[in-house]
Design a protein around this nucleic acid. Structure first.
Lengths: 351, 351
DNA sequence: GCCCCTAACTAAATCGATACAGAATCGTTC
DNA sequence: GAACGATTCTGTATCGATTTAGTTAGGGGC
């Protein structure tokens, strides 16, 4: 209502003839002053329209803001819409909410180009799936030691929350290969060092296995392939840069339009979004799933289980990942690497 | 890396033998000092691991934080998962992102119980669907004048962003009634002044029509009903307190379990979530849609259009609502009430 | 060589609170 | 009534930057 120059704690103190300390205490530590004075202060505050201690000043003085930031690899818009990312956010939000903290969303992209340090208002950072490349290596030393948790990637010196990507992708690939497909193929997600939205040639440099989840998933796929007598080096791979239909579709279209004797009859996909896009485009082309083409995903998003055929995939509990990361950042859980179990889902896209 | 006591701008200035003003300028106004000095400062900053100006201190001094808060009526967890709310967020995020702002998520519930003013760190507030009841009337005077935009409800003195709820619900109801159902019913969403998750009796007090969108929707339904010769007072109504399957299901179960001659053969629902729950539960009971039961929704969420039968509903562009609200808060659009158009979708649940 | 103007830099006030150490007040107890 | 401890309250340094007004240095014109 009143847009008049905001009144400050000090002015309120002068008005009442008490010290600023008492006014501060009236709001923050009721036990430090008499109930009578406290009430007088609170009444006068209400009368003058004092909004309570200014959060900016308080956070400067105390060093804490009760804000936890989630730094997202992709744009905010993407992350809010992406099923997996929003599950993570939901888990984080649940814990923060319960402990009186609020959630600040930062996109890794923007983060990079912005004025350095613009983000340091939060008490802690949950970094989700940021590539270790990018600006992160420059940017991260800015953050203190105990205020960062990595999710779905590894970062030297900070705790990370993962699922067991390698065993999980091994398991799903092993299951898929048990049907003895002739021409398996792999569709990766953000696996190459440099952006690449196409087939991966032999000379393409990949991200290191010990830092990124997608590389771990590939290791699992390869292990299963080898076990079944395939030479992983000869199994065709494609790379997708962004986990959206729009970005996936062209690459997948090319795969499906290969001549019959070159087109894979099994596609191991690194995300459900990719797998669902394969499914949609395959159906459009009149390919039968799973007869002509078997498909597996990774994530276990709801959308994959609604429609028929249901996706064969690995379910990971992203909500729980978010909860754990949030608890770590709030100091409610030990700050140590965590690896969550996954669950194989047998759908109809690869029975 | 270094968890050592963070270095400050002042210490950096002392180290370099220059004034704090120059260091500040080196980061904020390159044109205010010689390139040579600037480079020297930046190098030394990097060497000492100075993270750039502290955001807390800066925001206190400048009065701006480049943070915009979205205050959500429900819990954060709910809002992130809810299709409509997350569309809104996505629109907000898109604009904020493009203009170098970040997004803080606050839940209206928490907001109420927390220390007053705890939220005032943001430069502006987009309040989404908060009930005018609750604590809002107490809490809001805390906020300044030009830093608030209401979405999907009205608040004296602040601009609001809506869709044309009354005409839209009139249109969908009119369409539904053209099939001449015998026993129409209405399932409302958060319409009663006091919580009520059951049938609404004649003595229940409803929220005022001029402030809440659900009440406007009811007005539209009633107008269509009257036009078709029904007395709105005799048309049964139920109320749902939270737009989730779990909360909807019991109430809807009761409706569907009514004896055949009492069970509505048309249910006008105030959200797609409600309508989809009706659809699911009706199918479970072996009711035929639309033969035994016609259903209409409101929102136009994707989920309603994937499955068969597709939902007959009204599509509102929540992403655009978010964009507009964000532009208003950033001062990129005039601060005035906006009413967005909707689109009637003819699905199979009420052909 | 002198004056003046611009560019480069600095000193110090300020943003709005919190929290420490210490002062005043009060009621007990001996 | 003096001594004492607990309670209540105050004065002031401090958090880490930004910004205004002002000072110094450098360069051009005559």
């Amino acid at each position: 209502m009143s847009s008049s120059p905001r009144i400050t704690l000090k002015e309120l103190a002068v008005e009442l003839g008490v010290s600023t300390a008492s006014v501060s205490n009236a709001f923050n530590r009721p036990d430090q002053l008499s109930p009578k004075l406290r009430e007088r202060i609170l009444n006068e505050a209400k009368r003058l329209g004092y909004r309570g201690p200014d959060a900016k000043a308080r956070s400067l003085r105390t060093g804490r803001s009760r804000i936890i930031a989630v730094v997202l690899a992709e744009s905010l818009t993407y992350s809010i819409n992406d099923a997996v990312a929003s599950e993570l956010l939901s888990g984080v939000a649940e814990v923060l909410d319960a402990h009186g903290h609020t959630l600040l969303l930062l996109s890794g992209r923007q983060h990079a180009s912005q004025v350095p340090g613009s983000s340091s208002i939060a008490d802690g950072y949950i970094v989700y799936g940021l590539m270790p490349s990018l600006m992160m290596l420059d940017e991260l030393p800015r953050l203190g030691e105990r205020q960062l948790v990595a999710v779905d990637f590894d970062l030297e010196g900070y705790p990370a929350v993962h699922v067991d990507n390698e065993p999980a992708s091994y398991a799903v690939a092993r299951h898929a290969l048990s049907a003895r497909p002739k021409r398996p193929g792999i569709i990766n997600l953000r696996l190459t060092k440099h952006p690449c939205n196409a087939r991966i040639g032999p000379d393409q440099e990949l991200l290191p296995a010990d830092r990124t989840i997608t590389r771990s998933r590939l290791v699992g796929f390869h292990r299963a392939l080898e076990e079944q007598g395939f030479d992983p080096a000869t199994v065709p791979m494609w790379n997708i840069e962004e986990n959206t239909f729009e970005v996936c579709a062209p690459v997948i279209g090319e795969i499906l339009d290969l001549p019959d004797d070159e087109r894979p009859d099994l596609l191991l996909c690194m995300s459900d979004r990719i797998a669902l896009t394969v499914l949609t485009l395959a159906e459009q082309r009149g390919l039968r799933v799973p007869e002509d083409l078997r498909i597996t995903g990774f994530d276990g998003i709801a959308e994959g289980q609604y429609r028929a055929p249901r996706l064969t995939t690995v379910r990971q509990d992203s909500v729980e990942k978010g909860r754990i990361a949030a608890r770590m950042i709030l100091g409610l859980a030990p700050r140590e690497d965590r690896q969550l179990p996954t669950e194989l889902i047998f759908g109809e896209t690869c029975p």
